[in-house]
Every structure is written in structure tokens, then in C-alpha cells.
């Protein structure tokens, strides 16, 4: 655990720089050790897909990256900035909630259950964080929001309430909401698992479109086809550790580990 803060903040990362650095992360819930030393590097502009059986710790890993879960050991940095802690010498000082919230504005998170704010319209959902957390002027935030809605194909739904939309539409709104903060990295926690089968495609299409434009993304999913088509790196997790990782062709078609083979034989 050395040389954590290589301050490259504000320097625009070029493709290939490490954007997300997960280092020796351990996480327990009581006696249950969910993550047992995870290392993971995600380069800027790349799409990383995390696969694994349920209970393997993939969602927990994703949630530690934006500090929704605190780690017990190890550290995570995004674009060279330590998440949730400040380092001085050999000590890590826990950040105050206010500072953690500020860090989270650089990390977009898309939930399995969308978690849109049901009492706000689609447009209000999109401008809430830019206006309150980034102090953007309302007018500018609305313009950005409408552009993003257009991008996810929902320009006409700006004034609808979330419950008036289908699951697929809600998840597309949730993606637009995460993008409204112009995050450095987008995290997806099983974005299509709560959707009816015929709605999965429209959400995956939006994510694929983002991948083409060079958004750095980490996607936890069970959609193997999506992983094969979009991922630059496929990570297979089991029992709280990364079992193997590499390009989709290597991991999906020629897995090196028995556990990976066993998992793929069940889902393919």
C-alpha cells in the first residue's frame, strides 16, 4: 500500500491511464467476509464487465468504489484521488460525509432498481444533483438534461413522472441522471436484472452507445452476450476474489480456471 496519492487530479486522462484503481480491498459484513483482497485496474475509456455467481461480491465491490460501503482494508482511487480517505504519512483519515458526497459527483452509479425519485418529474430527477451538488445554474442544468434525455431516446418524457414510464425507460432515465454530473466513471449494478426480457435490449443499447463514445464504465451483469460484444476486459469473481480477468475472448472462450469454466457452462 504505497504511493497512493499520485496527484493527477484535473489533468484530463488519456485513454490508457488507470482511472479506477482497486487495491487489496477487504470487506466484511459482521462475520461474513464478502471481499477478500480484490485488486482491479480500469483504464480510462475502457469498459470492464464483472461476472460471477451471486454472492461472489461483485455488487459489494461496485458499492465500495463510490464509498456506499466502507472498506475494512485496502484502498480505492479514482483518477489518482483516494476515495473516502485522505492520506497523511502512513495514516488514512476518514473523510467527512460532505467531502465523500463531493467525490461521488465524479462517480456515476446506476442501480438495479433504478431508484428514481418518484415524486419528481424526469427532468427534475436529472437536474437535482447538478443544481444542488455542483451548484450549476438551473437553466444550464435543464439544457444538459434535455440533451441527455434526447441521447437516451426519451426527449418527450421530460415532464412525466417515473411511475408513468416502463422499467426500461426508467433505467434509461437513471442512466441519463448519472450522466448529468459528467462523471469520470460510470458504475452499473446489474442494470437489466429488474427488467422484463423484452426491455433489456433498449437499456443495453444505451450502454453500448456510451461505450462507443469512450465513457469509462464498470458493469456488473449477467448478460454474457453483452460482455462479449462491449467489454474491453472481463473480470470473473468468485468467493470475494478476482479469479481471472482479461479480454472477453480469453476469459469467455478459453477460461483458465475451473471455477470460471463451471460458471460459464451454467450460464452460456
Amino acid at each position: 500500500m504505497s504511493d497512493v496519492t499520485v496527484a493527477v487530479k484535473d489533468a484530463t486522462p488519456t485513454v490508457g491511464d488507470v482511472m479506477v484503481d482497486v487495491h487489496g480491498v477487504h470487506k466484511s459484513f459482521g462475520p461474513l467476509e464478502v471481499l477478500r483482497g480484490v485488486d482491479l485496474q480500469v483504464r480510462a475509456g475502457e469498459v470492464t464487465v464483472i461476472l460471477g455467481p451471486s454472492g461472489s461480491g461483485k455488487s459489494t465491490l461496485l458499492r465500495t468504489i463510490n464509498h456506499l460501503e466502507k472498506v475494512n482494508r485496502g484502498w480505492i482511487s479514482i483518477d489518482g484521488e483516494l476515495i473516502g480517505y485522505r492520506r497523511s504519512g502512513s495514516k488514512l483519515h476518514e473523510l467527512k460525509e460532505k467531502d465523500v458526497l463531493k467525490q461521488r459527483t465524479h462517480i456515476g452509479f446506476v442501480f438495479q432498481n433504478f431508484n428514481l425519485f418518484p415524486h419528481l418529474t424526469v427532468l427534475e430527477n436529472l437536474i437535482e444533483a447538478p443544481v444542488s451538488a455542483l451548484r450549476r445554474p438551473r437553466r444550464a442544468a435543464e439544457e444538459t438534461a434535455r440533451r441527455l434525455l434526447d441521447r437516451v431516446g426519451l426527449a418527450d418524457k421530460a415532464d412525466a413522472y417515473p411511475r408513468q414510464l416502463s422499467g426500461g425507460q426508467q433505467q434509461r432515465v437513471a442512466i441519463a441522471r448519472a450522466l448529468a454530473l459528467e462523471p469520470k466513471v460510470l458504475l452499473f449494478d446489474e442494470p437489466t436484472s429488474a427488467l422484463d426480457p423484452e426491455l433489456v435490449g433498449e437499456v443495453l443499447d444505451v450502454i453500448k452507445d456510451l461505450a462507443r463514445t469512450g465513457t469509462t464504465m464498470i458493469v456488473v451483469t449477467h448478460e454474457i452476450g453483452f460482455a462479449r460484444e462491449v467489454a474491453d476486459t472481463v473480470v470473473f469473481m468468485d468467493g470475494g476474489v478476482v479469479v481471472e480477468q482479461g479480454p472477453p475472448a480469453a476469459v469467455l472462450d478459453n477460461p483458465q480456471h475451473e471455477r470460471t469454466r463451471a460458471f460459464l457452462s451454467k450460464v452460456l
Binding site: R104, F109, L116, A133, A178, L181
Partner: peptide, 10 residues
Amino acid sequence: EAAAALGIPR
């Protein structure tokens, strides 16, 4: 959780 993930002040 969604509000926290978006960095909305407490």
C-alpha cells in the same frame, strides 16, 4: 442511497 450516490448534500 440514490441521493447519496449522486452527491446531493445531506
